[in-house]
Structures are given as structure tokens and as C-alpha cells.
Design a protein around this nucleic acid. Structure first.
Length: 483
RNA sequence: GGGAGCGUAGCUCAGCUGGUAGAGCAAGUGACUCUUAAUCACUGGGUCCAGGGUUCGAAUCCCUGCGCUCCUACCA
């Protein structure tokens, strides 16, 4: 890697340019975006553009280049008649990948290509490395993730996808601000991990000589703000979970958590039904989105279906499902499994609750293609939410499911400190230290009834951009180090 | 964690049952004043992922390691 023929040639051409009076790494160059130049094209007007050379078509006395500045591509024409001799000679020293600034006159070729006839130009950055092949670009997935800058400079779809991601973040903020929510930041560096059941990353704080963890969720701090009277808050930031990496999991990922005091689960449903169409309208331009390899159409027009967990199970497994004993349910589940060809994992399943959950996960959730709120879950699944008022065996939450996957949960939050402590203790088992005493004491000051919501932003971006891998929507996904 | 596949020129990829490595693009030189994946001619370019083994001989077969991809399992 230290030396190769391409690098040597480019170093030589760099020296040649220097000898001709150019600075191979130039300075500030005021210019307009290519997208703007294209939109405001007026034949014969003088314009200044800057960007990277993607293609060079040399024809001797008239040469064509394709330049990319991140907002689009534009053709530059270097013509012997139109350039001072030194600038025409120096053009021969340019290579693919070099970044230049050019001033010239807008011109449309006979084939109708909008172009800039260059009258003056300068080099702004010499590229010593060879860019990937012009037609296929960088195709190797590993290289695209490891060297995202090369992927971005050559693959327009990649760049477009991250523009979209950025717009989704901005419009999410705008939407929540417009509804009176305040954006806040809470600690990422924590002394104990809470708000979720996940293994944290450990680190060490030298000044205090204390072990710390990176947060697995902002939840417990955001609720402290509700106690303090910040009634409508959201945080958009990173969580870290020390678990596996696969197509839908990156160890650091972006979450949006939203809390609304004096609200409940249904307030959060309203936010989802407002936010998602807002993102579709402002960022994507359509409420119907092709999803996954099948390209199935997901329709984000509201209202979304709301259905109780048990009703959903009955739809698939029969009206009598919850009246059957465990043995009879097992029989029925096996029959259904055989009939649908879906394998149920029944090894550790010892009661009706677990069996029903397995049936839901494998046979039911995957078939919920259009946006659906699954509500009223058994309380055992969600220990930190509040029970339904009419049925203490159920919790007042939803799982928002799209395309057969859970996109986000929403809760009527537990604000009873006594119940919260019980739930913590059950969750923590013997490990008493895991109970967050300061959080309990915050609840003991009184937290208003509250609705809460947590969205995996990466997965939201995947859904809206039609990607089926988290690495495609994270600029620098975690990879093992190569050598 | 289990299964399958992949790793060859800067990039995209061929390379059959083992016989000393090939194309296109890119690069260098030359021709060409409307090209646009420009075209034409000539030229250069390789630790075939790493290490070991089998063999007279390995990119090719076997083993180990590293990395990636897909499937599957797990995961608030």
C-alpha cells in the first residue's frame, strides 16, 4: 500500500502542477452548487463550480469531464480555443478523483447536455488514490462500509440515502417542536444501566476511579424530567448495547424517546400517526412505500389498525384459544405449525403464556404487513408499564408493527413508585444493586400520568428508504477490525 | 451460536478434472474540437487474504486462522 504505480504517477503530476504555479491543495473557492446551477441554467451566463472529477473524456483539443459536487453531476468542457495556453496544458495533469474549481460559461451541447465551458480553473485537492471503476462503482460491501467516503463519492444512491436520513432527523425534530415538545439531552455515561434489559458496555472514569457504563436507554432520566415539570420532552440520541451484530442490530444505534405528561398510550399512538405521515410527506414524497426485496407496498395513510393482542391471537388460532388448556393449545400450535410450514421453537415452552408468545412471534407478527398497533399485552412481557384499568393481567401498551416487524413500543408509563420498585426487584432478581434508588425516589416525588414512546431511528430510516440492513443506513457501521 | 458461500490487477469480475494468471474499466504514450460507460493503436501493471499440508508441480485439492456476505438462532 505504501507505494504503487498509480500513486507515483499522481505524485509526479502533482509536482508538474506545482511547477506550473498551481497549489495542489488549494484554498477557499466561492462557488454555487451544481444542483443550483442546473436549476437556474441560463445559456451564456458565467458561473463558478467546484467538485470532484468522476470522468474525463479526452479528445485532444476538446475535452469533457463529469464533475460531482455532492449535489449532482455536471459536465465541464476544456476547450483549447477557450483557455489560456498554460491552463490548457495543465489540464493534461488532471486525474480522476481530483477536486477542482472552475469558472466558465454555461453552454448546451448538440446532444442537449448542460455544460460549463471552462475559462479559468484551479486545482483544489489532488487525489493520490485511484477512484473505483466508473460504471460499477465500489461494489464490495465490506469496502463500502469500511471506506464509506469512497462509497459516498462514487455511489449516488448511498449519498442520497444519507441525505434522506438527515432529513428524517430534521423533520422529526420539527414535528415534535411544532407539537410543543422540548428536545433534551441526558447522560450517556452512567453509573448503572437502566430503562431496558440489555448488556451494557463498560468503561472507566479515571478521575473518580469508578467503573461506568454507556447507557442502554435514556428512559429513566427522561422520566426524572417529568417529575421536575418538563411535561413534554424528547431525546434523539445514541444507545449502546453490548450484544450481537446482524442485519438489524448495530451495537450503537439511534433512538427517539418521547414522553408526554398527562397522556397515556393513546397519546403516543396519535404522535405516531402524526409523525410518520409527516415524514412520508416531507421527506419521501409519498405515503406508500415499497419495502424489502419483495417490494411490497406499505401504506402509511392513517388511521392505523388497533387490535388487542388476544384478539389477534384468536384471529389466527381460533376463538376458543384462551379457553383451552395448555395440552390442547400445544396440539393446536403444532398442527398450525405443520400446516403453515413455520417452525415453532417449543423446547423451553412450559406454559400457555410462553406458547402464545411463540405463536404470536412466529405465526402472527410476521403477517402484520400494514401499520398496526398491537395493544393490551400480558403484563409479564412488559414489567415497567402500567396495568390496564379494566384488567390487571394486561398492560396498557402498544407494539407498533410494520412489515411484520416491531418498529416501536409505546406505553402508559408506570408512575406508582411502590409498583415500580416491585417490578425492578423482580427484574433484578437477587442483584439488589440494580434497583435505581434515585429513580424510585424521583417517582416518590410524584410523576404525572405519562405516555412514552421509543423508536429505533435506524429501523425507521430502513423502513422509509426501503433498505433491509441497518448497515446501509448507518454511515460507519461496526465491523470487526481487519488485521 | 449453527449452516452455506466468498476473498484473484486500483475497481468490476473470469480462471473447468491441479501444469508458472486473463478480460473490461482505470493507468502511461500517441491520434482525435460536440464527447457522455467516447473511440482507436501501443505499453506497463499480480504476496491469487494469511499460514501450514498433499504433490514433480497448487489461485485450483486438504487443514488452520482472519475478514465479509447470505440463511438460521438469540437479543426491549
Amino acid at each position: 500500500m505504501e507505494t504503487n504505480e498509480y500513486r507515483d504517477q499522481r505524485l509526479a503530476s502533482m509536482q508538474n502542477l506545482a511547477a506550473m504555479g498551481f497549489k495542489p491543495y488549494g484554498s477557499k473557492f466561492p462557488h454555487e452548487d451544481i444542483a443550483h446551477a442546473r436549476d437556474s441554467f441560463v445559456e451564456g451566463e458565467t458561473r463558478r463550480l467546484a467538485g470532484r472529477l468522476l470522468m474525463i473524456r479526452r479528445m485532444g483539443k476538446m475535452n469533457f469531464c463529469t464533475m460531482n459536487d455532492g449535489t449532482g453531476r455536471f459536465q465541464l468542457i476544456f476547450k483549447r480555443d477557450e483557455l489560456p495556453d498554460n491552463l490548457f496544458q495543465a489540464f493534461k495533469q488532471l486525474n480522476l478523483g481530483d477536486i477542482i474549481g472552475a469558472e466558465g460559461v454555461l453552454f448546451t451541447t448538440q446532444r442537449g447536455e448542460k455544460s460549463l465551458v471552462v475559462k479559468d480553473w484551479t486545482i483544489l485537492a489532488k487525489a493520490l488514490e485511484q477512484p473505483p471503476e466508473k460504471f460499477h462503482g465500489l461494489a464490495d460491501q465490506e469496502e463500502r462500509y469500511r471506506r464509506r467516503y469512497v462509497d459516498l463519492m462514487t455511489n449516488d444512491e448511498t449519498r442520497e440515502r444519507f441525505f434522506t436520513r438527515s432529513r428524517i432527523l430534521m423533520e422529526t425534530r420539527k414535528y415534535l417542536w411544532s407539537r410543543g415538545f422540548l428536545e433534551v439531552e441526558t447522560p450517556i455515561l452512567q453509573s448503572q444501566a437502566g430503562g431496558a434489559a440489555a448488556k451494557p458496555f463498560h468503561t472507566h472514569f479515571n478521575a473518580l476511579d469508578r467503573d461506568m457504563v454507556l447507557r442502554i436507554a435514556p428512559e429513566l432520566y427522561l422520566k426524572r424530567l417529568l417529575v421536575g415539570g418538563m411535561n413534554k420532552v424528547f431525546e434523539l440520541g445514541k444507545d449502546f448495547r453490548n450484544e450481537g451484530i446482524d442485519r438489524s442490530h448495530n451495537p450503537e444505534f439511534t433512538v427517539l424517546e418521547v414522553y408526554e405528561a398527562y397522556g397515556d398510550r393513546t397519546s403516543m399512538e396519535e404522535i405516531i400517526e402524526g409523525l410518520i405521515p409527516h415524514l412520508c410527506d416531507t421527506v419521501i414524497g409519498s405515503r406508500k412505500i415499497a419495502y424489502g426485496e419483495s417490494g411490497e407496498i406499505i401504506d402509511f395513510n392513517t388511521p392505523y389498525r388497533r387490535v388487542a393482542y388476544k384478539d389477534l391471537v384468536r384471529e389466527t388460532m381460533g376463538e376458543d384459544w384462551f379457553d383451552l388448556d395448555f395440552a390442547a393449545q400445544l396440539e393446536k400450535a403444532k398442527a398450525k405449525s405443520a400446516a403453515t410450514g413455520v417452525n415453532l421453537e417449543l423446547d423451553g415452552v412450559s406454559d400457555s403464556l410462553m406458547l402464545t408468545r411463540e405463536v404470536y412471534d412466529k405465526l402472527i407478527e410476521k403477517n402484520l404487513r400494514q401499520p398496526t398497533f398491537v395493544t393490551r399485552l400480558p403484563r409479564e412481557f412488559v414489567p415497567l408499564a402500567k396495568a390496564c384499568e379494566d384488567d390487571p393481567t394486561l398492560v396498557d401498551v402498544f407494539e407498533f408493527v410494520v412489515g411484520g416487524r416491531e418498529l416501536c413500543p409505546g406505553y402508559t408509563e408506570q408512575n406508582n413508585p411502590i409498583e415500580q420498585r416491585k417490578a425492578f426487584e423482580i427484574q433484578a432478581g437477587e442483584d439488589v444493586e440494580k434497583v435505581d434508588e434515585d429513580f424510585i425516589s424521583a417517582l416518590e416525588c410524584g410523576m404525572p400520568p405519562t405516555g412514552g414512546l421509543g423508536i429505533g431511528v435506524d429501523r425507521l430510516v430502513m423502513l422509509l428508504t426501503g433498505c433491509d440492513g441497518i448497515r446501509d443506513v448507518v454511515l460507519f457501521p461496526q465491523l470487526k477490525s481487519d488485521k
